[in-house]
Nucleic acid binder design. Sequence first.
DNA 1: CAGGATCCCATAAGATACTG
DNA 2: CAGTATCTTATGGGATCCTG
Lengths: 116, 116
Amino acid sequence: MPELDRPAECARHLMPAMDTLELLGGKWKLLIVLGLLYGGKTRFKQLQKSIPGITGKVLSNDLKDLEQNGIITRTVYDTSPITVEYELTPYGRTLEKLILEIREWGMIHRQRILSE
Amino acid sequence: MPELDRPAECARHLMPAMDTLELLGGKWKLLIVLGLLYGGKTRFKQLQKSIPGITGKVLSNDLKDLEQNGIITRTVYDTSPITVEYELTPYGRTLEKLILEIREWGMIHRQRILSE
DNA sequence: CAGGATCCCATAAGATACTG
DNA sequence: CAGTATCTTATGGGATCCTG
């Protein structure tokens, strides 16, 4: 039996996971997507309020990043003052299962911590 | 219809996700767990080779962290030189579904990127 | 309202050398 | 082999102020 081809193993097993980590990495991105999953189309300020602790700058940066990755869309309305709404794309919504799973595990983990 | 109780919403929806992020956060922890999922009981050096790019220091730190969180066990064998093996705990294995899901999404994402 | 511009800092992570 | 110690750097993120 030949040794495992490590580089190939890496490409097939680890790299896709790294891709996801890169896309949703950082402290807030996943929570932003989660917020949009629950809130639907949401304005900037409203989104910020739904994620206690996040600053405007970080939210702005992360939203840009998510938009460039095709996860969300940004729509500007020419009101006065202007309003901007963010929304998950269909592609972004493919993250739903994953994110709910992450949250689910966290809930179980919380039970475990509390019952210790 | 009353306004949503934001703090409570936060606690129920966002905090569990943050918990998981904290536990698996950083650049490598998830890959370490993934490596142990695939490789089973694994020695330090072997684990390092299975995760190209990770340095000994980071691997060591992350393993300590995962051990303290009950995700993995560390077993020292009194050979010469000593060998140390790491293994997922049953609790750690509850992360399997989640981690495979993360990888799965990354694979689909990869397809999407390549076919653009 | 939605964010850009700045400044600042803590910390994660990399490089390297060393040890029981 | 399985780490630890030390140093260095990059950057993610926080705080604050400003603007169309």
